[in-house]
């Protein structure tokens, strides 16, 4: 069931020059919202900005009826959103789209019980959540839910600079966090796909065993393979991760952010080519298994 309602801004914090954390509160119980879903926000006081802005759900707090949104200041609409004051009203259509697949039980080490679909890869293995820039937004709520299910999510977050890495302290509440920046100002220098944990996992997946003297990513009593990758970020980044996943036959879900107008499957503007034709990202996605897409990877 989709809803339309006025929410009240409960917090609006500038995280960096390009991002703000917008918290909104509903004067009612929240419906179930799953990680990976998004909302459509009507930008107030911006008569020339016609369309709603699709924004991913960053976090849901059912206790306080709050929704957290990570807003990247891209144009006039998102700039207006960054200027909203506490107490102002925001009209939102929610929740939209389909979320990530959540494995119902934690993976047991040593190839015990197979995880329920869609994790068709081997029994044990870590759940790797890879995000770039604003694309890290949906991974926080996803990580929280995975942790609640008993998993130990592993976050790999990338940004251009340290200022593009967002909410690291929040991510650390739910799992191990690794970072990359293009200028080396935080974590490893380079893109997420160059990070040593991916290479380490790649090696161990080839050998099928844990190598000794591994970096922190594999330290402790944790499985050495990746059972599933979730990724959201710029398309080239998602495609590079998808390629890695495909090479190592790791199930991989990507969250797309194609330009959209309606958000509810009416306008047919946000289509992505899939193995079953042009499909609306807003209703069939935004999360897709990479095997559904026709990416040349």
């Amino acid at each position: 069931m989709k809803h339309i309602a006025d929410w009240t801004v409960s917090e609006n914090k500038r995280l960096s020059a390009d991002f703000c954390l917008l918290k909104v509160r509903l004067n009612d119980e929240l419906p179930e919202i799953v990680p990976g879903q998004f909302v459509q926000i009507l930008v107030p006081n911006a008569p020339n900005t016609l369309l709603r802005r699709p924004i991913s759900v960053h976090f849901v707090d059912y206790d306080t009826h709050e929704l957290w949104l990570l807003v990247q200041l891209v144009g006039a609409g998102t700039k207006k959103l960054s200027e909203l004051k506490v107490g102002e009203q925001l009209n939102i259509v929610f929740p939209l789209g389909n979320g990530f697949s959540l494995p119902s039980a934690p993976s047991s080490r040593g190839g015990g019980e197979a995880i329920t679909p869609p994790l068709e890869a081997g029994g044990g293995g870590r759940l790797l959540l890879i995000g770039g820039g604003a694309g890290t937004a949906p991974l926080l709520y996803l990580g929280k839910q995975l942790k609640e299910l008993g998993h130990q999510p592993l976050f790999l977050l990338g940004g251009r600079t340290v200022n593009h890495l967002l909410q690291l302290a929040e991510f650390e509440k739910y799992g191990e966090v690794h970072t990359t920046t293009e200028d080396g100002s935080h974590g490893e220098k380079g893109f997420v796909t160059n990070h040593t944990i991916l290479q380490t996992f790649a090696i161990s997946s080839q050998r099928g065993v844990m190598s000794t003297g591994t970096p922190a990513a594999c330290s402790g009593d944790t499985p050495s393979t990746i059972a599933q990758i979730y990724v959201c970020g710029p398309k080239p980044m998602m495609q590079a991760v998808a390629k890695y996943a495909k090479q190592h036959t790791i199930p991989c879900e990507v969250s797309l952010e194609n330009k959209m107008a309606c958000g509810i499957g009416a306008c047919l503007c946000c289509v992505e080519k899939t193995t079953y034709g042009n499909i609306c990202v807003c209703t069939a996605g935004p999360v897709f298994n990479i095997n559904q897409l026709t990416w040349q990877i």
């Binding site: 194609n258 306008c267 042009n278």
Partner: peptide, 10 residues
């Protein structure tokens, strides 16, 4: 199948 993406501009 319609036209290729992108199909919309504000």
């Amino acid at each position: 199948e319609g036209n290729d993406y992108p199909r919309m501009a504000e």
